[in-house]
């Protein structure tokens, strides 16, 4: 299971999202969009547009699922579903 997220260093909900996965000891990768250069930001925005109509943060990908906004219920559901499939 791969967890990746685009975040903003200024956003408290992005921090809560990182905290959620840390507390569950689930490894994740993240990129703080606002700390990237313009070229990289362009690439990120294009990818976000491709995956969802909403370009807001936190922008979380759990395997092929995209969750925009801090949504611990959804994260748990997707993590839980992963568990059940085994």
């Amino acid at each position: 299971m791969k967890v990746f997220m685009y975040t903003l260093s200024t956003c408290p909900w992005c921090r809560k999202t990182k905290q959620f996965f840390k507390e569950k000891n689930i490894p994740f990768e993240f990129v703080d969009y606002d700390l990237q250069n313009e070229e990289e930001q362009d690439k990120i925005m294009k990818e976000m547009e491709k995956l969802s109509t909403t370009k807001a943060f936190p922008f979380v990908k759990i395997d092929d699922n995209v969750i925009v906004g801090y949504n611990p219920d959804k994260y748990s559901e997707l993590l839980g579903e992963k568990g059940k499939q085994k």
Binding site: L8, T10, Q41, M45, K55, A56
Partner: peptide, 26 residues
Amino acid sequence: DFLLEQEVLLEQKHGIPYCPCQGLTK
């Protein structure tokens, strides 16, 4: 308090207090 603090930082950086949870583009 935290959000207003971030907006002061964003204002110092960009000249405008943007939303701390939405991304700027060109």
